[in-house]
Structures are given as structure tokens and as C-alpha cells.
């Protein structure tokens, strides 16, 4: 029996694999990315003390800036490890969106 005949006998899936693949990427990675970006934004906001966290609620804008400067002064020193880790985080998210986008664009455009 030839390969094409074997393929003809194989029942066609109800949902094509490609559709499942895209659905998986969209359902799992995309909301996760949004969640991660949101958390990253919150971390950044907390770092600079913009008043989102109750613990660092600023009294007024000038106070918030003074608090921010104090926080920056207390920041851990920039070692090579810290620099690499801080650069990997945005690179990772750009990579996630590039991979997801390439997958979607390759199939849809």
C-alpha cells in the first residue's frame, strides 16, 4: 500500500492540527504574556513608588519623587549578574511576542 493510500484511509481530524496549535499559543502564551507584562509594570511602579502599593502610598507628588530618589539610592549595586538578568527579562518577552507573532503571521498573512 502506498503512502498516499494510507494517508487517504486515515480519518481527517475534526479540528486541523494547525488550528489547535494556534489556539494553544493564543490561549496559553498570550494571556500569560499579558499577565507577566502587567506584573512587570507593577514591579516597576512599586520600585519607583508611584502610589500603587499601599505600603508606599505617597502623600503628594513631590513626596513621591523624594521617596523615589531615596529608593534609588538604596538600590543594590549593579553587578554583571544583575545587568544580565535585567536584560534577559525584556529580551525574553520580545522573543515570546516575536515567536507567537511569526507563527500567527506565517499562517494568516
Amino acid at each position: 500500500m502506498t503512502v498516499s493510500r494510507m494517508e487517504a484511509r486515515r480519518p481527517r481530524p475534526l479540528i486541523p492540527f494547525r488550528v489547535l496549535e494556534i489556539a494553544l499559543v493564543v490561549l496559553v502564551l498570550f494571556p500569560f504574556s499579558i499577565f507577566a507584562i502587567r506584573s512587570r509594570e507593577q514591579v516597576l511602579s512599586r520600585r519607583i513608588g508611584d502610589g500603587r502599593s499601599a505600603a508606599i502610598q505617597p502623600v503628594n507628588a513631590a513626596d513621591a519623587r523624594a521617596r523615589l530618589k531615596a529608593q534609588r539610592a538604596q538600590r543594590r549595586p549593579r553587578t554583571a549578574g544583575v545587568v544580565i538578568v535585567e536584560l534577559i527579562v525584556p529580551l525574553f518577552w520580545i522573543g515570546v511576542f516575536a515567536v507567537v507573532g511569526r507563527r500567527i503571521f506565517a499562517l494568516r498573512l
Binding site: I37, R40, E41, S45, I48, P90, V96, G101, R102, F105
Partner: peptide
């Protein structure tokens, strides 16, 4: 502080848009 929020949110959004720009 609202300007900081705008800056941080736009920066986060840019990560996604730059990724998609690279993809395209």
C-alpha cells in the same frame, strides 16, 4: 505620578509591539 504610569505602561506595551514588529 500619572506620567510615570503612562511611561511604564507604554514601555510594557512596546515590548509586545517591538516583538510583533520583529516577527513581521
Amino acid at each position: 505620578p500619572r506620567w510615570r504610569n503612562v511611561h511604564n505602561m507604554t514601555a510594557s506595551f512596546l515590548l509586545a509591539v517591538v516583538g510583533l514588529h520583529i516577527a513581521l
